[in-house]
Computed example of a mutant assay.
Amino acid sequence: MSIDFKKTLNGVHPSLSDSSNGAPLSISNDTLAALTGVVHSLKQEKQQRLQKVQELTKFLVELWDLMEMPIDEQKAFSHVTRLISASVDEVSIRGCLSADVIKQVEVEVQRLNVLKASKMKELVFKRHNELEEIYRGVHMDVDSEAARKILTSRIESGNIDMSELLQSMDDQIRMAKEQALSRRDILDRVEKWKFAAEEEKWLDEYEKENKKQLFCLISDCIYEFNAFGS
């Protein structure tokens, strides 16, 4: 926790932190009681700091997921993300619960909260484009311009929760994918039917052409035969 251990011991009794002057080490009941109190206090402080780091880090991870932050940027905070599910007894790395570490996470959370509004708008339109691509992929008509204007108007009104809007867009994408899958199956069947119909038409024309050629050949044979007969 980056606490000055020597200073803490000196606060209990000077002999505990400095024995260079030859003074005997104090092991009185009062000193032992004071040490016990310090240990208890440090454990409580450690618990409180760990809880604060875990709460901040969980919020940080939520912001990362929401804003689709690159993994490389997340790695800079691996020293706190590993503490999310840790118990007090499992935390033993020196300085991992220091005031500087807590401040670092707080500053990052504040920074991401500032970026959140613009980033969320970007993500919403990214989802909108994805939705349009799904519909276009199965030849469904979409008025992109009108949809974008409505979306922009809702965002700029400031009366909408961007997180809820993003979740709504994700739900729409999921439903669109299901519809597209069903529609694609129908389109595939139509394509197969069209191919079969075209193939049947070609075979009919081919058969007619063959019959025509055969008729011509028979006619020629009859003509030649008649010529010999005369």
Rank of each mutant, 00 (worst) to 15 (best):
S153K: 09
K58C: 07
A227C: 10
K43F: 09
H128F: 14
A227I: 07
K194Q: 14
M162G: 12
E209N: 09
W64T: 01
E191P: 02
T36N: 10
S168E: 15
A76V: 07
K7M: 14
I102M: 05
E199G: 05
S17A: 14
F225N: 11
I173P: 10
V190R: 13
K121C: 04
E199D: 15
N226F: 10
E122T: 08
E90C: 12
D30S: 13
L97F: 06
S87R: 07
S26H: 06
L217Y: 03
L166P: 07
D18K: 02
K103I: 04
I71L: 12
W193N: 11
K192C: 08
Q172A: 15
S20H: 04
L166D: 05
D170V: 11
T8K: 06
T57A: 04
S163D: 11
E205S: 04
V190A: 09
K194T: 15
V107W: 01
R154A: 15
P70M: 02
V142C: 11
F225Q: 10
V138T: 11
Y206H: 15
S19R: 11
G137W: 01
E108D: 02
L60H: 02
M175Q: 15
S98N: 03
Q51R: 08
E73F: 09
Y206V: 04
E68I: 01
N226M: 11
V61W: 04
A34P: 03
Q48W: 02
S118F: 00
I93E: 15
M140H: 09
A86I: 01
H139I: 13
V190D: 08
C221R: 09
V190I: 13
E207Y: 06
D188G: 12
E122I: 00
S85T: 12
I134C: 10
P24F: 05
H79Y: 13
T36H: 09
E207Q: 09
P14T: 07
S153A: 15
L16E: 05
L165H: 12
S118P: 00
C96D: 13
V142K: 05
V101T: 06
A76M: 10
Q47F: 04
K192S: 11
D188E: 13
T36L: 08
S219R: 08
R49A: 10
F195I: 09
E198I: 04
I150F: 13
T57N: 05
E156N: 12
L131F: 11
M162T: 05
S2D: 14
A197G: 06
H139F: 14
H13W: 01
L56K: 02
I84R: 05
R111L: 00
K201W: 03
E45L: 13
C221H: 06
R136K: 15
L63K: 00
V61F: 03
L123A: 12
